[in-house]
């Protein structure tokens, strides 16, 4: 992405005809939820009050929110660890998310695992495991089952450009292509796999070029423009729903924090972060909404204050809860 920095243009938001203003406000709200959850948990982490890791998605919000917003409730979604926005889009309550992140009593995972690794089958949301890439074949299998049952659903799955270098990426996407599975895979290219830059991850120009090799459509888009993400996902989902098979979307963004909060990301050139800070998906969208008279600055600030107050309150409450009792460790190894 050095060439992008050289030109240093901040692209305009490209509005899509597919969204009305009410939907646009909803997109902003979900992006704010994701951003503020990060801000609050980073603060707690620094205060030594957080439990587990904080894998911030700052810089990714437009991707998970803009794409998940396309889906119908019966569609399934397999997010990865920087897709908290998608959890909010699917309507998972903040308290549920917090319980799972903090592995507290009452969490859906009973304290067996944390972060966004949980599944909420009612909302057709299935979290990732730490082995990124592993859920690609699983999501494809979910889509194949829908195909077998004659259910017109679509499965949306996410991976980083790091996880896109696994064997399971290839096996899963190829199998989906061969079976014309109703499957959409979004690569969130945030330019670093932990400390490894893209130049040491792959040699092709664009990861969407791989789509040709699978015989499916692929495109690379601005992952910091929520409207662009919505539009690209919309057509990929439509294609999948029509039985025309999977699509690959590469959404370019920047991981604005370390791999997790223990990591200060000193290996990322500061000028790169400076450039991408100007492309902040949330701030750019706020500016777009203000410039187009959809929301006022004051309304956005009010929304922000409400979400922040709610996030702080819920996380504080959940942090007061006990961990699940030890006997949970012995349950559900088998059903």
């Amino acid at each position: 992405m050095a060439d992008v920095v050289a030109t240093a243009e901040i692209p305009e938001i490209v509005p899509t005809r597919l969204l009305n203003d009410q939907q646009r406000v909803a997109l902003l709200r979900w992006m704010l939820h994701a951003r503020i959850f990060d801000e609050v948990t980073i603060r707690l982490y620094r205060q030594g009050k957080m439990f587990g890791s904080v894998f911030a998605q700052i810089g990714h919000e437009a991707i998970s929110v803009g794409s998940a917003a396309v889906l119908q409730p019966e569609d399934a979604i397999f997010p990865m660890h920087r897709d908290l926005g998608a959890h909010f889009v699917r309507g998972v309550p903040l308290r549920t998310i917090a319980l799972n992140h903090l592995a507290r009593q009452g969490s859906m995972m009973r304290g067996t695992d944390g972060t966004g690794h949980y599944a909420d089958p009612q909302r057709k949301l299935y979290g990732n495991i730490s082995h990124l890439g592993a859920m690609i074949p699983v999501a494809v299998g979910y889509a194949l089952a829908a195909q077998l049952k004659g259910e017109p659903i679509v499965v949306l799955n996410y991976i980083g450009e790091g996880g896109a270098q696994t064997g399971e990426f290839h096996e899963g996407l190829n199998f989906a292509a061969v079976r014309k599975a109703p499957f959409v895979l979004i690569i969130e290219n945030n330019q670093y796999a932990y400390s490894t830059p893209t130049t040491e991850e792959y040699a092709c120009k664009k990861l969407s070029d791989r789509a040709i090799g699978y015989g499916i459509p692929g495109e690379t888009i601005d992952g910091t423009d929520v409207e662009r993400v919505y539009e690209a996902t919309f057509y990929a989902v439509e294609r999948a729903r029509n039985g025309e098979g999977p699509s690959l979307i590469e959404a370019i963004c920047m991981r604005m924090r370390g791999h997790a909060e223990h990591d200060n990301a000193s290996y990322v050139p500061r000028e790169l972060l400076e450039y991408w800070k100007k492309r902040d998906p949330l701030l750019r969208y706020q500016r777009f909404l203000i410039d187009n008279g959809i929301l006022s600055e004051a309304e956005i600030q009010q929304m922000r204050r409400e979400i922040e107050a709610e996030t702080v309150r819920v996380l504080d409450e959940v942090l007061q809860l006990p961990f699940p009792p030890a006997e949970e460790a012995f349950k559900n190894v088998f059903l």
Partner: peptide, 24 residues
């Protein structure tokens, strides 16, 4: 119901897991 697959054991087993999560 009798699906030939590519030589992709991770896709075969992972695909089976996903299909099971979707009720098959």
């Amino acid at each position: 119901r009798v699906i030939n697959t590519p030589i992709s054991e991770a896709a075969i087993i992972g695909g089976a897991i996903g299909a099971a999560l979707n009720g098959l």
